[in-house]
């Protein structure tokens, strides 16, 4: 027997779950399989974070982002990053316009002025261009010629990069990597999913995606998430995980001591906590459990753990390091 307040809150939570399910189902109408990727991307979006998708070409990364944008009824922009791409090509520039007989400089917004920005093959742009995204990702604003321009909320950057064909690419700097909420690996679909992909994409009538949630819905869902309570032992568990990724920590496993140069930042812990809250609500619980934390640790930290020279030389995956941390704790 709940009170009116609790009943209202329960309704909000139910609405959250239903909205999330609707988006997921709508995306799944076009994207075959990749359920975890879809859920993780949606969790990151609900939490207001950006996602870095990594996978070989042809796995549907761009299609996924495009489909999500369609399902969310949000303004979508795509930038194909190339080495000759300039920051002005992203954030916009001032152009000289003649209006009423007078010529004046007017700001022409770039493609970054959207709700969902697909930064395709982000690692092909120069660091200068990559860093132009920094301000937009963190501050949600653009500064051109001394003038700041606020981006419309919600704003998400969904970037993709190709793990192969490293020639002519510029690895993302650590500071920018840290801005991404999740880094997700898009893997090859299984045998059955392949059938479904072929069937869906080779017909004359591909599935039509309709918007099932608005930007306002996403913002409201994000606010609700922050109210989900977290018990102190769960927080303690989370903190110990993040600290254990540092090689000089007493809880760090041997693998972290040997192959890690620098561990995850507090921003990583924030990402884990937010994602764990979303996981808890999606699981139908009103509190965060250690299982929720464990479930999101890998995508939240895999790009925040910096390997040492030995780790890089031996090609140690950061996922293994994080798995060792989880195993030890």
């Amino acid at each position: 027997m709940s009170t009116p307040t609790a009943q209202a809150l329960a309704g909000e939570v139910e609405n959250f779950v239903q909205t999330f399910q609707r988006i997921r189902e709508e995306v799944s109408r076009f994207i075959v399989g990749q359920h975890e990727i879809i859920e993780d991307v949606l969790i990151a979006i609900v939490c207001g974070g950006h996602v870095l998708l990594e996978g070989v070409p042809g796995l549907g990364k761009t299609a996924l982002v495009h489909t999500i944008s369609q399902a969310l009824d949000l303004k979508f922009q795509r930038i194909q990053f190339t080495p000759d791409l300039l920051p002005a090509d992203i954030v916009g520039t001032q152009v000289l316009l003649e209006r009423d007989g007078r010529r004046q400089l007017e700001f022409q917004p770039g493609p970054v002025f959207a709700n969902i920005l697909l930064a395709d093959e982000i690692n092909r742009a120069t660091p200068k261009t990559q860093s132009a995204l920094l301000e937009t990702m963190q501050e949600k604003s653009v500064t051109v010629a001394g003038q700041s321009h606020r981006l419309e909320l919600p704003f998400f950057v969904l970037a993709t990069q190709n793990p192969i064909e490293q020639d002519g690419t510029f690895p993302l700097p650590e500071a920018q990597l840290d801005r991404f909420f999740f880094k997700l690996f898009v893997r090859l679909p299984n045998h059955d999913d392949f059938f479904e992909i072929l069937n869906r994409t080779s017909s004359n009538h591909p599935p039509a995606i309709t918007p099932v949630a608005s930007g306002e819905d996403l913002l409201r869902m994000g606010r609700l998430l922050r109210e989900v309570p977290v018990d102190r032992p769960v927080q303690d568990y989370l903190i110990r995980i993040v600290r254990a990724t540092h090689p000089d920590n007493e809880d760090a496993p041997e693998m972290a001591r040997k192959y890690v140069r620098y561990g995850a930042s507090p921003r990583g812990a924030q990402a884990i906590l937010a994602a764990a809250r979303a996981k808890a609500l999606l699981d139908g619980r009103f509190h965060v459990a250690t299982e929720d934390v464990s479930a999101v640790v890998v995508p939240a930290l895999r790009h925040r753990v910096l390997l040492s020279f030995e780790g890089e030389a031996e090609g140690v995956p950061t996922d293994d390091v994080i798995a060792a941390v989880l195993k030890k704790l």
Binding site: S2, T5, A6, L9, V13, P229, F286, H287, A289
Partner: peptide, 17 residues
């Protein structure tokens, strides 16, 4: 979590639920 929330005196909202 319920035990700890109760001991900490947290009520209403999500705690109640």
């Amino acid at each position: 979590s319920c035990r700890n929330f109760t001991q900490d005196g947290r009520r209403d909202g999500f705690y109640d639920l």
